[in-house]
Structure formats: C-alpha cells, structure tokens
Design a protein around this nucleic acid. Structure first.
Lengths: 210, 210
DNA sequence: GGGACCTCTCTTGTATACATACGCCGCCGG
DNA sequence: CCGGCGGCGTATGTATACAAGAGAGGTCCC
C-alpha cells in the first residue's frame, strides 16, 4: 500500500512516519504539523503533505478538532474490531484460495513456514513477525482477489499495532508456526470449511495470547 | 471517505473525478495527467495531485506502466470479488449490530425503508439507489465499528460501479425494499445468524439480478 | 539494413512563495 | 465578572517555478 513502489522523498517520509507510528515512537494522540516534519526530514512541505494524506487515508492519522492530524490511538475496542475484520476478510480469502490453490502456491506457503520455524528456533522474533505477516499476505494472495488484498494491506498497519504487546517467546512462535503448517495442510486438501474455521481460530487466538 | 469534509479545491476536483469515473463519463482504462486536469478544472496542479492520490489510494485509479494513472476497469471477476468482500464485511458488521442495536437504530433503519418505498413507488431510481446505499451504511454503522465502516466506504465506489447496469424497475426496487424491511425485522429480533444469512443472500442476489 | 545510443520532450517530483482561513488572546462592554 | 468581538499569528491550501527521470524518436555506426 501507500505510495506505490517508487523511490521518492514522499515515500521515504511516509515510511519513516509509518514506522514511527507502528513502533510507538510517535505517541498516540500527538499532533503532526507539516513544517516541523519537513524540517525534521530535510525536505519541503510538499512530500510531507503527500505522506500525511496517505497515512490519513489509511487511518493511521485521524483528523482531530482544531484542524490537526493526530496519531491514531487504538483502544481495546478497536483491537477486537481489527480482529473481527481480519477474520471476515481473511476467511473469505481462504475459502476462495481453496478453490484456486496450485501446487506452487502450496509450496511457497510451506517455504514460509519453514523459514518461520527457523526464526522461531533462533529466537529471532523480529524476522518471525515479518514472516508471519508475509504468510498471511501470501495466503490471501492465493485467492487472487486484488481488492481484498489491498484492504488487508491497509489493515496491516493496524494489525501490527494490535500486536505490539504480544508475547514473542520461542514456545509461542513455535505454536504459531504449527498452526500455519496446519493451515497449509488444509489448503492443500482443499478443505475450505475447515481452513476457514482454523484460520478464524488462529487469528482470534493471536489477539488473546497477550 | 476521501478528503474529509472540508470545502477545498482539491475536494471539488476529487468529487468531480469520482463522479466522472462512477458515471462512466471517464472511460475505464484511459490515462489522466495532472496538467490537463488542472487546466480543465481551472486550478493548479497541486489540488489535482491531491485528488489523484486520494483516488489512487481508494483504488479508483490504478498505476499503469509508463508511469500513468489509469481509470480502473472493473472486470467480471472483479465484480464477484467486490460482492464477496461486501458479504464478508457487512456480514461481520451485521452480527455485531445485532448485539448493539438500540430501538433508535431500528427506527432510523425503518425510516430509510419507508423513504425507499416512496422512491420505489414514484419510480425515482436515483434517490432509491442513494437510499439503498445509505441503508447499508447505516446498518453497518449500528455495529459501531469505525474501521470496518471506513473500509466499506472505500468499497462504496466499487459497489456503485458494479451496479451500473442493474435493473431499476419499480418491481425490482420494491423487492429490494422488502428485503431491507426483512433485515430490519431480523435485527430487531436480534437473530444474528438469520440476519447474516439474509444479508448475504440479499447482497449476492443484487449482483445476480442484472 | 538493423540495432544501439543519444537527445529531446513530456510528465511527474520537489521547492518555495503567496493566500487564506481558523483559532486564540486580549480588550471592551454589559 | 463574564461574554462577545476584533486583530493577530500560525497552520494549511494553492499557485508557480524549477529539476529530474523516463519514454520516444531519430540518427549514426557497424
């Protein structure tokens, strides 16, 4: 999502701000203004403006009163909402994916679980998290529903936010990996109903284990 | 969605372009460039740029090769994808709405069906369509899931696109109204499963009846 | 004659200057 | 003492000028 794939100042500012928000470096609720950001990043207001607009359309910034842009604050209620949306969207994608999965798709997903297992074994929680997100993206991609994937991409930032306090122990990572492996098995067997169910349980439980 | 609620040139250009795309006036697949649009609307490139970025992030414009922005082309496959997403998202919202609906919510929805019936009776297909969209928005709003509503808003443009060739006869409009009334009944009775099912059938069938 | 390179142009990216609108603060009047 | 009103400051909205990159077409060399 965001600013296509082009390497531009607007894209860099966007990435920087996004990373700042997701890491919690930019505290929720604080206001951003164009000039200080432009100054801070050593660019003019124009690319900053663009980055701010993009982040706003993704919901990471929310227009406040007093004509300000505030860093979004995810409440507990918001968290469960994100989970519900993921369940709905990824569930729909999974059902379609069952009908369309090729052996190559299955292999690609298997490869990801293997990498995940390695990350879990080496206790590399950062790369594990990245692989986890990639797995879900890849699974949705199998459905070949570009608009749905686009929505999930947008949601990705929120998912990351909801996972900030999640445990990252080896045990936990291995558990998640096992669940992913199971999901791939179900996909390969084309058990649409079972896959959907397992996926929904997987996503929901992720939100619980904190 | 789009450009907040402010009255600005960027917002006007955005609305104009959006309307053009949704009405089919801007043919799918054609490329837009900033200068001609700026010239056509009598503004500078800056607001045009902003409008284009917003439309792109909503998916109404897609980046093509040769660094162009093309008006989105909704294929048949894309149509069914939109329906599937609506089913997933609105279904999830409906389930939650059942748990949260207040008498006021129900009344507001009833009022909309009444207005719809009038539009159907007077054969005013344009206001009927608007009310239909508003009904679905309102139903989702009952769930009080702002992010989900935001996604549905974004999807709204595509929904409109998929409905371009839909029949608008009095019979058809009355049928849809009846279905809406039934949905409200189920919501009031808090029959979550039934509501979800009926809603999914309603949305799916809408796409069929063309 | 064909292919590669070079240049030219057209478009988008960026900077900056100007306009405007909105909120805030202080003053005045009730 | 409170409430409204007006000026001021600061933010965003807009215009425009400049830069840079990518594609197209022509030309030159092999």
């Amino acid at each position: 999502m965001g600013t296509d794939g082009r390497d531009t100042k607007a894209a860099r500012v966007y990435e920087a701000l996004r990373a700042g928000i997701l890491s919690g470096e930019l505290v929720a609720g604080s206001a951003l203004d164009e000039v200080s950001l432009a100054d801070a990043h050593g660019v003019s207001r124009t690319p900053v403006r663009e980055a701010l607009r993009t982040l706003t359309s993704e919901g990471l910034l929310v227009p406040g009163s007093r004509r300000q842009l505030l860093v979004v604050d995810v409440s507990e209620r918001h968290r469960s909402e994100i989970v519900a949306i993921r369940v709905a969207l990824e569930g729909a994608a999974a059902a379609e994916a069952c009908a369309r999965a090729t052996p190559d798709d299955v292999d690609a997903l298997r490869l990801l679980t293997i990498k995940q297992r390695r990350s879990a074994d080496t206790d590399d929680s950062e790369s594990f998290l990245r692989l986890d997100e990639e797995f879900h993206r890849a699974l949705a991609a199998v459905a070949a529903m570009p608009t749905l994937s686009r929505l999930l991409m947008q949601l990705g930032a929120f998912v990351r936010l909801t996972r900030l306090g999640e445990p990252t122990g080896r045990r936990h990572m291995r558990g998640l990996t096992r669940e992913h492996e199971h999901l791939v098995d179900l996909l390969e067997a084309r058990e649409a109903a079972g896959l959907r169910e397992a996926l929904e349980a997987h996503i929901s439980s992720t939100a619980q284990r904190r």
